[in-house]
Each structure stands twice: as structure tokens, then as C-alpha cells.
Computed example of a mutant assay.
Amino acid sequence: MEKSNFVDQIRIFCRSGHGGAGSKHFMRTKFNPQAGPDGGDGGRGGHIILRGNKNMWTLLHLRYYKNVLAENGQGGNKNNMKGRDGKDIVIEVPLGTVARDEETEENEAEILEHGQEIVWIKGGRGGLGNAQFATPTNQAPEHAQPGEPGEEGWKVLELKVLADVGLVGFPNAGKSTLLSVITAAKPKIADYAFTTINPNLGIVAYRDGKSFCVADLPGIIEGAAEGRGLGHRFLRHIERNSVLLFVIPADSNDHKKEFAILVNELEQYNPELLHKQFLIAISKSEMLDDELKAAIVKELPANIPHIFISSMTQQGLNDLKDLLWKALNEGQEVTNN
């Protein structure tokens, strides 16, 4: 099977550079064979640095980059010459990337801005040469420090898509079709579950040259929070979205139950997701008359804004853009009970 070009998690082995050893050396001149210590310091080991790049959308470029080994620092030399620092390694990553330690699962770095640089794994410090240890009472120190070792271990880079609005719903709810008509994105669309297996991003052109970003995310199934279906791979992407648009098709057997399952999966994965702004879009509404719409409204939570839309007939799409823009820019507080 062909591998996807969207890679949102990478496991790599990292080792920063060891610091160079300090030099133990004594100056010798023609007229003074015991002129004193002149051993230089060792250079520091190379860092491993993360740099944000807004032009990247995936971790694909790191798929075969399994070992990241920074250069060691050079040792010090005579004449108080400091060793050269090890060359740093810069890893460019998309915005929204989180770096964590595989063993401890501790988050170690987070890249959110273009050009942002974070020293992820520091190189070892270079050792001091014996010239640094000279004192009035010890003018010929025989001691120089070794360099500090670098850090090493298995690390995980994980991409959480940065988008203003995340489309949430069951497979085949019409999320990809909606994205294709309100943005220039061209997601794969077909009449079977899990057409979308990777996030698709699109920019919605709004009034007066304004715009916002929408992410079409893989469909949730019941049990996703426990890892069923696309499970955690999907759910982690919605942590970055300011607004969640729940897309529920008009032909659903039970709109209230479908919404409840979706919210429950979010809560099971991360209860903090319930503090985001929720909106509901009833898709495929071209088949509804006013009486059916009224019946559906009775099933929906009264405290969450809703709208009826049709990607096929363009019904309600301009009103949807207005609703999303308002939610993104007015910071309305919504209680999701």
C-alpha cells in the first residue's frame, strides 16, 4: 500500500555532542622553560535545535532521518587555545510540533511561530584547561577537566495541526465536501467511511480580505478516545483549534445521540476540550423542509449555536462563514453542558 505523504508523528534517536576536554599543557619558551600553564578550554558539544517553518505541513522529511547525532566539541590546546564548538544540528518542523521524551513522556519543546528556535537537546559543556586552575599558591596545576557528555535518548516529534476551526463528526458526515466548497482545498471525497485519514487544511476567504483556517479532520467513531479507529491520531489535532464545528448529517438516525457521542469522545480524551467554542452544522440539509428542520432543532442543545447547510446547493454557507468569524473574533463564552 502506498505510504501517506502526511506524517504527523516521528520517533528518532537523538544525541547531542560531547564537550571537548580541557588541555593540560605548560608553556615552554627559550628563556623560560617553566613559563606556566597555558592549556585551553574544550569546546561545547553541538546542540540539537528545533526551528519553526510555516511552509511545512508534515513531518514527512524526517521519516528516514532516524538518528540525529550532533558533533562533539574539540579539545583545548596549548597557548590557551579554546577548542572549536561542535556543529549544531537544526531540525526544521511545521508549526504546531511538540517534542517529547519517549521514556518519560515529558513535553520538552513546542514550536508555534515561524522562525522560532528552541535548543531542544543541549550539547555537553567543554572542560576547563589547566590554565583556569592556576592560583597564587598553585601556579602549576596538573588538572584539566574532561568535557561533559551530551544527552541522548529516543524522542518523539508530534504534529498537532494549527487551524482556527476544526471540523468534527462521524465518517461520511460531509466534512470534506464542506471544506472543498468553502476553501480552495481539494480533499479526497467518496461515499465510504474514513475517506479522510489525514487532516486537510483550507483557507476560508472572508469579507474585506480577511481569512481564517479550517481543518477537515478524520472522522470520530465511538471508542476513539480509547484508540479505536483512528483514535488518538485524530483527537490530538483538535487540541489546537479555537472553534470546533460539529458536522452532523441531516439524515442521521439520532442527531442528539450523535452529538452526545462526539462530545463524550472529546471529554474522554481530554476534558479541557469541552472549554472550546462549539458550533453545530446540520449538513446535507437540501433534503429538509421547515417542519423537519424544526424537529431536528428540538434535538439539539439549546445553548450551542446551530445552522443548516448544504454543500451541494450552497445553502447557508455564507451564514456559516459569518457564524465562524463571529465565534473566532468575539470570544463568546459557551457553556457545553
Rank of each mutant, 00 (worst) to 15 (best):
residue 150 G to C: 11
residue 16 S to P: 06
residue 81 M to R: 15
residue 165 V to Q: 11
residue 132 Q to D: 15
residue 87 K to N: 13
residue 95 L to G: 04
residue 55 N to G: 10
residue 259 F to I: 08
residue 282 I to G: 05
residue 134 A to I: 10
residue 272 E to G: 11
residue 271 P to L: 05
residue 52 G to S: 09
residue 84 R to M: 02
residue 233 R to N: 06
residue 80 N to Y: 13
residue 111 I to E: 01
residue 220 I to E: 03
residue 328 L to N: 02
residue 38 D to G: 00
residue 76 G to F: 06
residue 89 I to V: 11
residue 213 C to K: 15
residue 150 G to T: 14
residue 45 G to S: 12
residue 295 A to R: 12
residue 60 L to V: 10
residue 29 T to A: 00
residue 32 N to E: 03
residue 106 E to M: 10
residue 73 G to Q: 04
residue 209 G to F: 11
residue 81 M to I: 14
residue 73 G to L: 02
residue 32 N to A: 00
residue 5 N to Q: 15
residue 13 F to A: 13
residue 196 T to Q: 02
residue 136 P to G: 10
residue 99 A to P: 08
residue 205 A to F: 11
residue 312 M to A: 13
residue 123 G to Y: 02
residue 105 E to T: 07
residue 112 L to M: 15
residue 138 N to W: 02
residue 23 S to G: 01
residue 271 P to S: 08
residue 70 A to F: 08
residue 119 V to W: 00
residue 41 D to C: 09
residue 105 E to P: 00
residue 154 W to N: 03
residue 238 I to W: 09
residue 174 G to F: 02
residue 279 L to I: 05
residue 324 L to R: 05
residue 91 I to Y: 01
residue 79 N to H: 11
residue 324 L to Q: 06
residue 60 L to E: 14
residue 15 R to L: 10
residue 81 M to N: 14
residue 225 A to G: 04
residue 51 R to E: 15
residue 307 I to T: 11
residue 13 F to T: 14
residue 53 N to Y: 12
residue 83 G to V: 08
residue 255 H to K: 13
residue 61 H to D: 04
residue 213 C to D: 02
residue 294 A to V: 07
residue 217 L to V: 05
residue 80 N to H: 14
residue 108 E to S: 06
residue 36 G to A: 07
residue 304 I to S: 06
residue 159 L to I: 08
residue 235 L to V: 04
residue 17 G to W: 01
residue 218 P to C: 01
residue 77 N to H: 15
residue 130 N to W: 03
residue 254 D to E: 08
residue 59 L to Q: 15
residue 95 L to Q: 06
residue 239 E to M: 08
residue 212 F to T: 01
residue 289 D to R: 12
residue 191 D to W: 10
residue 122 K to V: 02
residue 81 M to F: 15
residue 90 V to Y: 14
residue 298 K to S: 13
residue 224 A to R: 04
residue 268 Q to C: 01
residue 198 N to T: 11
residue 145 Q to N: 11
residue 47 H to G: 03
residue 17 G to I: 00
residue 307 I to S: 07
residue 328 L to Q: 02
residue 213 C to S: 12
residue 70 A to G: 06
residue 314 Q to H: 15
residue 325 W to R: 10
residue 326 K to A: 05
residue 209 G to Y: 04
residue 143 H to E: 07
residue 87 K to A: 09
residue 83 G to K: 03
residue 145 Q to E: 13
residue 72 N to H: 06
residue 243 V to Q: 01
residue 20 G to T: 03
residue 296 I to Q: 00
residue 169 G to T: 08
residue 180 S to K: 05
residue 118 I to E: 14
residue 50 L to K: 06
residue 14 C to N: 10
residue 194 F to K: 09
residue 303 N to H: 14
residue 37 P to L: 03
residue 67 N to E: 09
residue 78 K to Y: 06
residue 286 E to D: 14
residue 296 I to A: 07
residue 148 E to G: 10
residue 132 Q to I: 08
residue 238 I to R: 04
residue 165 V to D: 02
residue 302 A to W: 02
residue 300 L to H: 13
residue 23 S to A: 12
residue 148 E to Q: 13
residue 189 I to F: 06
residue 61 H to K: 09
residue 297 V to A: 08
residue 142 E to N: 13
residue 223 G to K: 12
residue 125 R to K: 12
residue 38 D to T: 05
residue 54 K to E: 12
residue 212 F to H: 07
residue 99 A to S: 12
residue 117 E to L: 04
residue 166 G to W: 03
residue 111 I to K: 05
residue 59 L to K: 12
residue 269 Y to G: 01
residue 201 L to A: 15
residue 58 T to A: 02
residue 209 G to E: 12
residue 139 Q to V: 07
